[in-house]
Write a protein that binds this DNA or RNA. Structure first.
Length: 183
DNA sequence: ATAGCGATGTTCT
DNA sequence: GAACATCGCTATA
């Protein structure tokens, strides 16, 4: 497992930026380079799903690091996180965007269009075929994996997190500028 | 380029 | 009942 995933969510988020996110769903291999992430804490972070403690939805967040936490957003979209920190911490990194590297045709088919394939948490999950069925899987060995090393080229910008109303003062969104796919 | 809005399930007050 | 870690379409500029 990526050792930084045992650490705090900001460290884990920066460690995931620039890595290859691969899905093997329905017999198709699809890969994107992670270009945008957000860090979420546990009981210390009012914007986190884990802030109010464990529920049926977020129980994966409280499990071991390196597993995928998938939830439904606004009743329509799937969003995926990589759990980090110690068991019980409830912290995770939201995967918000990536640039297509492999399986572009499969992504276009799943998305039903040829632009905006994986720039946004819901779009990324749709492009990779990630659904609630993948909640809890191990990102080292499962159908959705992080592969290889981080490509460290380019600068990283941090900004407030998107679409939240609490703890908006924390610059816990990280975007790599050299690669497109952020915003 | 930006603004408004509908869709829709789970969680929270 | 309201809010929500979103998205895509439509309208106006």
């Amino acid at each position: 497992m990526i050792s930084a995933l045992r650490g705090d969510p900001v460290t884990a988020a920066r460690a995931l930026l620039g890595r290859l996110l691969v899905s093997d769903v329905d017999g198709v291999r699809v890969a994107v380079r992670i270009s945008e992430v957000e860090a979420y804490g546990g009981a210390d972070d009012p914007a986190s799903h884990a802030y109010r403690g464990q529920t049926d939805r977020n129980r994966t967040m409280f499990g071991p690091p390196g597993h995928l936490y998938v939830y439904r957003s606004y009743g329509l979209h799937w969003c995926a996180n990589v759990v980090c920190g110690a068991v019980g911490a409830g912290s995770a990194v939201l995967l918000r965007g990536g640039t297509p590297e492999e399986g572009v045709e499969a992504m276009e088919r799943r998305r039903g269009r040829q632009d905006h394939l994986a720039d946004g948490p819901g779009r990324l999950c749709q492009a990779l075929g990630i659904t609630g069925a993948h909640d809890g899987i191990d990102v080292a060995t499962g159908a959705v994996r992080i592969e290889g090393r981080r490509s460290t080229q380019g600068a990283v910008v941090s900004t407030p997190r998107i679409g939240i109303t609490r703890a908006t003062n924390r610059d816990w969104r990280f975007v790599s500028t050299s690669v497109s796919g952020g915003r």
